[in-house]
């Protein structure tokens, strides 16, 4: 049963799952780290990303490599309206944000149900066909997803490492009060972080819709996964997201390949609950004082 081919398959699968999870969770952790907002509406933006990709790529036929970032950007910019209308009331109010944004999730999802009806649709693959390397079969589609995700993550990394705004954003994620005291314009940083976070979620949502199916209710799973990744790594910790995403992606891929999907979900949920109980600040987070 433990054939090298199966093993290789699981590794490839793990990489692509990890990439999606990191994308979803990165935005989630940014919002938490900088604005202290628990974004229960994160899955809704992933869902909107899926619909955006459905139109831009699936219907209008814009080339995939342009369509994917373009549709995510469209969702992120449109979401700025919600940032002004809803999110700003919840900045630095962790507890209220949880319930309030659950409300936002509900409102967005059911608006989507009215607009697009609840039935599942599918987003066409980026590239049909498969690549075979030494017996390991990889759908080309998956490679494209991993590629785009890798570019987005690399861009994010370079941005936070070298650009002025990126550095300010990282400072704010560390300690927003100190950042404000150093003269960083927090309103601008909030908006920037918000756009980046929603962009990532929408991008991942597009991949999700391609890999599984597109429907107004599809956001629940990415949200759940974002939760788990962020809890694993430590809420608000950016390196933690990378670690958590890789752990979860590979755990799901391997457990799913060898023991079946439900075992994988049980195991990862169970592990996260145990972690929450004994080390609630996660693997790379810092405990609150």
């Amino acid at each position: 049963m433990l054939s090298p081919i199966l093993l290789g398959q699981a590794v490839v699968n793990g990489i692509s799952l990890s990439a999606i999870y990191i994308l979803v969770a990165l935005g989630f952790t940014l919002l938490f780290g900088i604005m202290r907002v628990v974004n229960f509406a994160h899955g809704a933006f992933a869902m909107l990303g899926g619909y955006a990709l459905y139109y831009v790529y699936g219907r209008w036929g814009v080339p995939y490599l342009i369509a994917a970032p373009l549709s995510a950007l469209g969702v992120a910019l449109a979401a700025l309206v919600l940032e002004r209308l809803v999110y700003r009331w919840f900045y630095q109010k962790m507890f209220q944000s949880m319930i309030g944004l659950l409300g936002l999730e509900m409102a967005i999802v059911f608006t989507a149900v009215i607009i697009w009806d609840p039935h599942e649709r599918s987003v066409p693959a980026a590239l049909a066909g498969i690549v075979e390397v030494g017996g390991i079969i990889v759908p080309t589609d998956k490679l494209v997803i991993v590629g785009v995700a890798a570019v987005a993550l690399a861009a994010f990394y370079l941005f936070t490492k070298f650009s002025k705004y990126g550095l300010a954003m990282r400072a704010a994620a560390q300690d927003v009060e100190i950042a404000a005291a150093q003269g960083i314009d927090t309103t601008r940083i909030y908006q920037l972080a918000f756009v980046i976070a929603i962009f990532m979620a929408a991008l991942a949502g597009g991949f999700y819709a391609q890999t599984y199916a597109l429907s107004p209710l599809m956001g629940e799973r990415p949200l759940m996964m974002a939760f788990i990744v962020v809890i694993l790594g430590g809420m608000g910790s950016i390196p933690g997201v990378a670690l958590g995403g890789i752990i979860l992606g590979f755990a799901e891929s391997f457990l799913g390949t060898f023991y079946g999907g439900s075992v994988a979900v049980f195991a990862s949920f169970g592990a996260v609950i145990l972690l929450l109980i004994f080390r609630p600040w996660g693997l790379l987070g810092t405990p609150e004082t």
């Binding site: 319930i99 409300g103 059911f110």
Partner: peptide, 16 residues
């Protein structure tokens, strides 16, 4: 669906 949307908006308003 409209009910759920209204509930959602109420949740936001109440919490804020």
């Amino acid at each position: 669906e409209l009910q759920r949307i209204i509930f959602g908006i109420i949740l936001i308003i109440v919490m804020a």
